[in-house]
Computed example of a mutant assay.
Amino acid sequence: MTLELGGKGANLIFADADGRAVERGVRHVMENTGQSCNAPTRMLVERPLYDAAVETARRIAEDTRVGPAHDAGDHIGPVVNARQWEHVQGLIQKGIEEGARLVAGGPGRPEHLNRGYFVRPTVFADVKPGMSIERIEIFGPVLSIMPFDSEDEAVAIANDTDYGLTNYVQTADEARRHRLARRLKAGMVEMNGQSRGKGAPFGGTKASGRAREGGIWGIEEFLEVKSISGW
């Protein structure tokens, strides 16, 4: 059996990243109401950029509209069912109880909605490694932000997870991008908002599963190898 499972993607944003890096990362988490296995739900920001990144994330989250599918315009909808809504709500509450700083959103439905499985776009700052919201896949519009001071620290935090689907790197330093691509333990690494090439396989490592979709590797998942001696 081969499976493509969940993730807890780390988005490493260095101080020399392009001006849209933070906004791009926040929107990626919020789209599809956070129900994307490759969402960069852990945003690791180099210390000089940290305060500005938190403010940008707050603004983007608060500007993200929530509503039913028949509403006009750009917005996100509900999570899939009651069980998932309760799971997301429980982890948002856990983040507050464990001491993360709630920057936007929070428990409950958006104020203009009194029913349905709608979640407030939520951002936590000052998240520490080991907190529940940093360890568990939430699968909702919830972003955890934490600072780092060195490349080694960022890699250690990013790799300290049961998952290994997609990690992200935002930096203008080409040599650093190449180092990080090798050091990050994930089936996919995306850099500076650039999509992977056509035919590139989609899949992860560790608890994210080892299956691959797409390209030659995706076809090979459906093949069985026969070994014969003395032909």
Rank of each mutant, 00 (worst) to 15 (best):
1 M>W: 09
4 E>F: 10
6 G>H: 01
10 A>N: 01
10 A>K: 02
11 N>D: 08
11 N>R: 00
13 I>T: 03
14 F>L: 06
14 F>I: 03
15 A>G: 01
16 D>V: 07
18 D>M: 04
18 D>Q: 12
19 G>Y: 03
20 R>C: 02
20 R>V: 04
22 V>K: 05
32 N>T: 12
32 N>A: 14
33 T>D: 01
35 Q>L: 11
36 S>M: 11
38 N>R: 00
39 A>S: 15
47 R>H: 10
47 R>I: 05
52 A>G: 05
58 R>A: 13
62 E>H: 05
63 D>N: 10
63 D>A: 15
65 R>W: 08
68 P>V: 06
68 P>N: 03
69 A>W: 03
69 A>C: 03
69 A>Q: 00
70 H>G: 00
71 D>I: 00
73 G>W: 05
76 I>R: 02
77 G>P: 07
78 P>Q: 09
81 N>D: 15
82 A>F: 00
85 W>E: 07
88 V>I: 14
89 Q>Y: 02
90 G>Y: 07
90 G>M: 08
92 I>C: 10
94 K>L: 06
94 K>N: 01
96 I>H: 07
96 I>R: 01
97 E>A: 14
100 A>V: 10
105 G>C: 07
107 P>V: 03
108 G>R: 09
110 P>V: 09
113 L>S: 09
114 N>A: 11
116 G>S: 05
117 Y>I: 00
119 V>C: 06
120 R>S: 07
127 V>T: 09
127 V>S: 04
128 K>S: 04
129 P>E: 04
132 S>N: 00
133 I>H: 02
134 E>V: 00
134 E>F: 13
137 E>Y: 01
138 I>Y: 04
140 G>S: 07
140 G>A: 09
141 P>Q: 06
145 I>A: 03
145 I>F: 08
146 M>H: 02
147 P>A: 06
149 D>L: 04
157 I>F: 12
160 D>S: 14
164 G>P: 09
164 G>M: 10
165 L>H: 07
167 N>F: 12
169 V>C: 10
169 V>A: 11
170 Q>E: 15
179 R>D: 13
179 R>P: 10
179 R>H: 14
181 A>V: 15
187 G>C: 14
188 M>R: 13
189 V>I: 15
190 E>W: 09
190 E>H: 10
193 G>R: 00
199 G>D: 11
199 G>K: 12
203 G>R: 01
203 G>W: 05
204 G>C: 05
206 K>R: 13
207 A>M: 06
207 A>L: 04
208 S>Q: 01
210 R>N: 08
212 R>G: 11
214 G>N: 10
215 G>D: 14
216 I>L: 15
216 I>H: 15
219 I>D: 13
221 E>D: 15
222 F>T: 14
223 L>Q: 14
225 V>P: 05
226 K>M: 11
230 G>A: 12
230 G>F: 15
231 W>C: 02
